[in-house]
Amino acid sequence: MHELGITQEIVALAESRAGGRRVRGVVVEIGKLTAVLPDAVRFCFDLCTKGTLVEGAVLTIVETLGSARCLACGSVLQLDQPFGQCPCGCTDLDWLTGEELRITEIEIELEETS
């Protein structure tokens, strides 16, 4: 369950960027070719945010598709799993997308006027 550690990192990063204010939403990008399960991150999120400024925030996970360039013929193909075969027969692929694992956005509650 490496997703627990990754979710803790998401929460810590969001909190550190929020400048002491409450976080209402967090957007995370997880590539299809990473070994990170979005559902497991969702499962851990509520647990990890408890007692933090991120508690109650909405977690949005954007799953990016995997794609790769064939190193033999140069074709670009879509990858749904972390390996594949080009129609030309080659399995030596240079991954282009799908390895993303990052926070792209947080929504912060503005400070009170009073």
Partner: peptide, 18 residues
């Protein structure tokens, strides 16, 4: 933190995990 708020702002980030 206090009970009532006056809106929120969105902060674009590019923070790699791990």
């Amino acid at each position: 933190t206090h009970g009532h708020t006056h809106g929120h702002s969105t902060l674009q980030l590019h923070e790699e995990l791990l």
